[in-house]
Design a protein around this nucleic acid. Structure first.
Length: 576
RNA sequence: GACCCCAUCGUCUAGUCAGGUCUAGGACAUCAGGUUUUCAUCCUGGGAACAGGGGUUCGAAUCCCCUUGGGGUCGCCA
């Protein structure tokens, strides 16, 4: 299909935040890997906020020019992730009613014929030339340079080729790359909105490739051409691109267009300073597997023996998201969250992640830390972007999430928890009535740091009475086995009182238990609530006991207490 | 290794551009008390930083230089 070409703006974009700026256009340009990494999410967020706050447009472009790596299974996971975060795009891939636009297509692989004339232009003007070295030759030259401890730069051998030879090579159909001829007489100076002026002395930059042997443009060339054609005025991206920017500046100059405003944001790291990478999950899993000496896949993780062996043998292999998650569950460890989707599954609220992410590498100034999207859009500016790198601190994110949940309307929390369960824990919706679920949600709200907390600690609500067991842990022993009388004695004593309780409501249950505690254990409520809690849940933790009992219902409560009492002898034996 | 970027509590940061109001503020984490039927909350209080060295200046967290440390890039990957 013939792409429509946007007429690039020739006037210089005015800098910074001027209200008179005609039309600010920012873009996020990921390569299509499954899910969105938090680093990418932060870049996207900044681009989006800047455009939204300045009456501009935010575009999405997919950089899929790596034929070797772009799999056809290119998922739309990251589009979902963006949508979940509340980052919408004005132009880009079409998805659920958004996207499209006049400057597409928005997949680079569909723009191949767009780049060619620009390559030709540079070739014709002598700003670029053809180079016939093979990858192997170049690799060897690099290796040699390294061995001799000198910096390798392409030697421009192809420039020495006489025109006839070049003609001959071309006639032979020799594969070749096109290189940009980097001017070597003056420094390259790039202005960055965050970093200021960045200079590169002449001779530091080699003649880089702009078109690969397979005819595809390199990233550098495609980015520059696309940004120009799409009318991008502000390029906000991670600092890993800073070194590339001089190439982009040169290319734009040679093509005769105006440079955009660049803003390079510092990188995000793990607390230990390592790169936050998708591999961290596999790393965690491998370490655990190794420390336990597992040489076959544990039951229930859903990984085949063969896959397991391959995964263990090749450290570069990564488990699929689902496989990694179920293995972690079986091993009872938690995986580090890396992708936006991981945070979603872990029960973080999108608005909280947005808030926290925006604080990594930017701040509104003063003491303001917690804010919503509209505040960010209103306040965000390039001038307050932080230069130094940041470490990702999950405990602070968790604290923010807690605050947001606490501040939420009760009804709102029920709805959000319901949506969460729908996506990730349908069991909870299936096993409970609407009324029960509401009680379940409300009784958990004030103690939840994430939407996952209620389901993690409340599994016993959706288990059958027969599934409840009482592993003899320290806490359980203390609650039901220790002392004279012990928890079992108290359970036996209160059992009929509970069975006769009417109505089965928190207030009434409280009355029963307090009265009983008053006469039987000097008002020490814990002496009776804790045994009941253990009996009905199989563990020492639950929502407030009266709520717990109400949600469970009288029948299940009595049944579980009876089963617990029936298990008394085993338990006492195990507790010794 | 070469080039580039960066440097305030354990962490994210305010303060730096326009040097004095900074005995450096906030948040998270941490520690000590307290509330609480479990867990989690919640309340009160404490400790905690201008990387080091030289300049400039009446005066430096703020400006300059060096050192050190951290990071990025050095692909016919993006």
């Amino acid at each position: 299909m013939a792409p429509r070409v946007f007429s690039p703006q020739r006037s210089s974009p005015t800098s910074g935040d001027g209200m008179s700026t005609p039309s600010i256009r920012t873009r996020f340009a990921p390569s299509p890997s499954g899910h969105l990494h938090v680093g990418g999410a932060r870049s996207a967020l900044f681009c989006w906020a800047f455009a939204r706050g300045h009456n501009g447009q935010f575009l999405l472009r997919i950089e899929d020019t790596d034929q070797k790596r772009s799999s056809d299974a290119a998922s739309t996971g990251f589009l979902e992730d963006l949508a979940w975060l509340g980052i919408d795009w004005d132009e880009g891939p079409q998805w659920h009613g958004r996207g499209g636009g006049d400057t597409g297509p928005y997949y680079q692989s569909q723009r191949l014929d767009i780049y060619e004339p620009f390559t030709q232009q540079l070739l014709d003007s002598g700003a670029a030339y053809r180079a016939f070295e093979t990858t192997e030759e170049l690799d060897a030259a690099r290796k040699l340079a390294r061995a001799e401890k000198r910096a390798y730069r392409y030697d421009r051998a192809a420039l020495e080729l006489d025109p006839d030879t070049v003609e001959r090579f071309l006639a032979e159909g020799r594969p070749h790359a096109v290189r940009f001829k980097v001017p070597d007489d003056e420094p390259i100076v790039v202005h960055d909105a965050v970093l200021g002026e960045v200079r590169l002395e002449p001779g530091e930059l080699e003649d880089f490739v702009i078109r690969k042997g397979d005819g595809y443009p390199t990233y550098h060339f495609a980015v520059v051409v696309d940004d120009v054609l799409m009318g991008v005025t502000h390029v906000i991206r991670g600092q890993e691109h800073l070194a590339n920017t001089s190439k982009h500046a040169l290319l734009i100059d040679a093509l005769g267009f105006d440079r955009p405003i660049w803003a390079h944001v510092s990188l995000i790291f793990n607390p230990d300073g390592s790169k936050m990478s998708k591999r961290d999950k596999d790393k965690t899993l491998r370490a655990e597997v190794k420390s336990r000496g597992l040489d076959s896949p544990p039951e229930g993780c859903g990984i085949s023996r063969e896959h397991w062996a391959n995964w263990l043998a090749d450290k570069k292999l990564q488990l699929e998201t689902d496989a990694a998650a179920s293995l972690a569950r079986v091993l009872e460890i938690s995986l580090p969250e890396i992708d936006v989707d991981d945070f979603r599954r872990a029960g973080y609220l999108p608005e909280v992640l947005v808030n926290y992410l925006s604080l990594l590498g930017w701040s509104p100034g003063g003491d303001r830390e917690q804010f919503d999207r509209s505040f960010l859009v209103e306040q965000f500016g390039l001038d307050r972007i932080v230069k130094s790198p940041a470490k990702f601190d999950r405990s602070k994110l968790l604290a923010f999430n807690l605050d947001a949940i606490q501040a939420m309307d009760a009804d709102q929390f029920v709805v959000r928890l319901q949506a969460f369960c729908q996506d990730f824990e349908p069991e909870f919706l299936e096993a409970m009535s609407t009324h029960q679920f509401k009680l379940f949600a409300l009784s958990n709200k004030e103690r939840s740091k994430t939407l996952r907390d209620p389901v993690d600690t409340g599994r016993f609500f959706v288990q059958s009475d027969e599934q409840i067991e009482w592993p003899m842990t320290k806490a359980i022993r203390k609650a039901i086995c220790k002392g004279e009388p012990n928890g079992f004695d108290r359970l036996a004593a209160i059992r009929d009182l509970l069975a006769a309780a009417e109505p089965w409501e928190p207030a009434h249950l409280e009355e029963i238990l307090s009265t009983w505690a008053e006469t039987n254990c000097e008002g020490n409520l814990g002496k009776i609530t804790q045994p009941i809690r253990v009996a009905v849940s199989g563990g020492p933790v639950s929502p407030p006991i009266y709520d717990t009992l109400e949600i469970l219902g009288k029948k299940a409560v009595i049944n579980r207490i009876d089963r617990c009492l029936a298990n008394r002898e085993n338990a006492m034996e195990a507790s010794l």
